[in-house]
Structure formats: structure tokens, C-alpha cells
């Protein structure tokens, strides 16, 4: 497990979603247009490392949440908001929720998120 905080202790292992190294995120790079807002996001890999840090600190549920987050990194915002809406009371039938879970698992390999949605479906 890498040393925490990653940005301070292990920046060399961090990358942006577009593959830039952590050290390449500079003001000059922003001004030259090399770094955009989409680059300033966490990656699934970093979230997995953070989940390991949480686990090691005895925080099982936080670790689980971070692993669900890792699955959602590649899921578009619109789809995330659609699923969130469906999970709110009275919005979606059981079948619809199961359908969303299956879709999420199939398209993005989001096993843990799918499990959460299935659990909500009852």
C-alpha cells in the first residue's frame, strides 16, 4: 500500500484520467490549455488505493464506498443522475431498478454499484 497522503508522499504514482502525471499539472500547463477541468479528476486506480488506505484504518464501509466510486469514474454524469433519480422513493419499479443494475454491470463492470441497486430494489 502506498504511503498516505498520496499527493504528498507518492505523487509519482498519480495520474490524471487523461494520463498526465501529477507533476505535469501546473499553472503553465493550464494556461497552455494542456490541462482542462476533465483532467482534474480522480482515477479508479487512485480510488482503489484510497479504499486500501480506508480498509487499513479499519473503515470497511468507507472502503466499499470508494470502490463503488471507482466503478463510477467512467460512468457519465447523466447516467449517474438517472440512477440516483431512480433510487429515490416511488420513482422506479423493482424491474426498472434491476434493469438499471444490469445495465451498469454490463456496460461498466460496476458490480458493487449494481449490488447496491439490487439491494434497494428489495
Amino acid at each position: 500500500m502506498p504511503e498516505y497522503p498520496l499527493a504528498e508522499k507518492s505523487p509519482e504514482i498519480l495520474k490524471t484520467p487523461s494520463g498526465l502525471a501529477f507533476a505535469e499539472i501546473t499553472l503553465d500547463a493550464v494556461l497552455e490549455g494542456k490541462v482542462r477541468m476533465e483532467d482534474l479528476r480522480v482515477t479508479a486506480e487512485a480510488l482503489e488505493l484510497q479504499a486500501q488506505v480506508a480498509d487499513a484504518a479499519g473503515r470497511r464501509q468507507l472502503g466499499e464506498n470508494l470502490r463503488r466510486a471507482a466503478e463510477l469514474v467512467v460512468v457519465p454524469e447523466e447516467q449517474i443522475l438517472k440512477i440516483y433519480q431512480a433510487l429515490r422513493p416511488g420513482r422506479a419499479s423493482r424491474a426498472e431498478l434491476l434493469g438499471l443494475a444490469a445495465e451498469l454491470e454490463r456496460e461498466f463492470g460496476a458490480r458493487r454499484c449494481a449490488e447496491l441497486i439490487r439491494e434497494a430494489a428489495g
Binding site: A7, E8, P11, L14, R59
Partner: peptide, 29 residues
């Protein structure tokens, strides 16, 4: 930029995080 860049690390997702000048993340970890 420095505080946005921290996002890439996910460091402040850990319990009780605050960001100190630097920026340095301080948390329950």
C-alpha cells in the same frame, strides 16, 4: 489549481480531511 489537483489523488476523501497550506491534507489517517 493546487486544491483542484488534490482531487486527482483522492486524499481528502479519507475521514475528517482538511487541507492545510501547501496544500497538505490532514485527516484521521
Amino acid at each position: 489549481l493546487a486544491i483542484q489537483r488534490l482531487r486527482v489523488s483522492g486524499d481528502y476523501l479519507q475521514t475528517s480531511s482538511v487541507v492545510l497550506p501547501g496544500p497538505r491534507v490532514l485527516s484521521a489517517v
